[in-house]
């Protein structure tokens, strides 16, 4: 039995610890905001946040849920795009994406939102030398073929 917090709810599953978190999110939990693209960790459409309890609070990072075994979730906090704004409205990252027109067809946008949110939660505030698009380097959503790209640093 694996237990963790999924967005704002306690969640337990009997699925084997080696099964893929993306499948649990989309099938068992029916949270279809997280998308399946390549299913091999390259495209980032499936990016979610994984939070670990630390002595001084929670630490969050963006991870590819298609490569994430369920066992990793035990006792941790899994945040999908649905969990970013449980009440109405947009998160700051989402508002920026809307205002800057950085979403075109939108399929990969949840992944980009989660990557940027993870970046902002896990790093000091971005500067011109270390601008916001760095999460791509950390193997999160980085592939854009159809989309416009956010302006450097915005």
């Amino acid at each position: 039995m694996i237990s963790f917090i999924l967005n704002d709810q306690q969640f337990s599953t009997e699925l084997p610890p080696g099964s893929v978190a993306l499948d649990l999110i989309r099938k068992a939990a029916r949270l279809t905001g997280t998308k399946e693209g390549c299913r091999e960790g390259d495209c980032g459409a499936c990016t979610v946040l994984l939070g670990f309890p630390q002595q001084d609070g929670m630490k969050y990072m963006a991870v590819n849920s298609c490569l994430l075994p369920l066992g990793e979730l035990q006792g941790n906090h899994l945040v999908t795009v649905e969990g970013l704004n449980p009440s109405k409205g947009y998160s700051p990252v989402q508002s920026l994406i809307v205002n800057e027109g950085a979403s075109q067809c939108g399929f990969c946008t949840p992944g980009i939102v989660m990557s940027l949110t993870g970046y902002l939660l896990s790093t000091v505030f971005p500067t011109a030398e270390e601008p916001i698009f760095l999460p791509q380097k950390r193997k999160s959503c980085g592939i854009l073929n159809c989309c416009s790209f956010p302006e450097n640093g915005e």
Binding site: E100, G101, A102, C147
Partner: peptide, 17 residues
């Protein structure tokens, strides 16, 4: 214009790829 600009940026990048 915002969407069209995005389409041009995306088209350019895909073409370069």
């Amino acid at each position: 214009p915002l969407i069209d600009r995005g389409q041009i940026e995306g088209g350019l990048l895909q073409g370069i790829g």
